[in-house]
Amino acid sequence: MREQQNCMEKLVFVTSLTCLMVVGYGIVGFPCILPYFYTGAAPFLVGLRIWLYWGVKWQLFLVDFCYFANLLLYIYLWACPGTEEVFCVVFAVANGPLLFAIITYRNTLAFHSLDRMTSVFIHILPALTTFAIRWYPSTSMPWYTSFASIDLGADDRLPWEWIVAVPFGFYVLHTIMYFTVVYICVKPDEQYWDTYRYMTGSSGGIISKVLNVFGPKYKPVVFVTLSWLYTLMTMLIGVLWFKYFYAHCVFLSIIGLVLIWNGASFYLDVFSEKGLDAEPYRFCVKPSEAK
């Protein structure tokens, strides 16, 4: 069993680095491959995550906003790639809350870990794909139809309603539906984790203290309100990435450095002591056997 586990994680390591090289090549030399790469990678990784998370009772994570944002990008790519309004919405969610989630949730370049690398790809691939579409018109050439081309015009007018208002409304609607279905209708047992329980699980952390400022009764309200403010802030900042090419490049580079730093910290501070026990589960462990 140990040899099989090591073999599978070596395979994940090699695959992760190969995918990283493909994405890097796509960004600097051949951006038209990114929509195709995303089209193949996203359903494969999400499918594996569904299989693994269902076994460890983490399936509520699978209805987080980031998965709906990836679904929205998928719909845009294959249903309406020429629609400017839809592209603006997709760009806003991909380069706003999804990119900032890498910092918030401390995503890590741990190349042997399917779970950690899946989180990285889910959060950064939509941003890289929309980066290619926004700034490299040649991306459209091998696609079945032309992508939306955004021209701000001589007055440099931004489509605020589509780059901020509509995507933020989409996030608000998702939050309301999520809490209504999960915590009012379904009411899952405490052994089922989701983002809300993950973020509020620490009893002595700063986040926990902030959420309890008005007492435990109002903790969900405070959590939702802060998440809305946080998302709106990331979308407003994301307007800079939509408007300025170099600002977009710099921020994506910063996100890359954050991923590298988190990866170095993981391997030197955590993995060096705990080894493969640092993982929440091993890749080849059947979900029914996961603890």
Rank of each mutant, 00 (worst) to 15 (best):
Q4I: 13
T18V: 14
M21D: 01
L34M: 12
F37D: 10
A42Q: 15
V46D: 11
R49N: 07
W51H: 06
Y53T: 12
W54E: 05
G55F: 03
W58V: 09
N70T: 14
L71S: 13
L71T: 14
L73K: 07
E85V: 10
E85D: 06
C88P: 04
P97Y: 06
A101Q: 04
I103G: 01
R106H: 08
N107K: 04
T108G: 00
M117T: 09
T129R: 08
T130Q: 02
F131R: 01
T145C: 07
D155I: 06
D155M: 03
R157A: 04
W160G: 00
E161R: 06
A165F: 11
F170D: 07
Y171L: 07
V172E: 05
V172S: 05
I176F: 13
M177S: 12
T180F: 14
V182K: 14
K187Q: 14
G201F: 14
G205K: 11
S208P: 04
V210A: 06
V213P: 00
G215N: 07
P220G: 03
V221W: 05
F223Q: 05
T225E: 04
T225D: 00
L226F: 08
T231M: 04
L232S: 05
L232G: 09
T234R: 11
G238K: 13
V239E: 09
A247P: 09
V250K: 07
V250P: 03
F251K: 02
S253Q: 12
V258Q: 03
W261M: 04
L268K: 14
S272P: 03
E279R: 10
Y281L: 09
P287R: 06
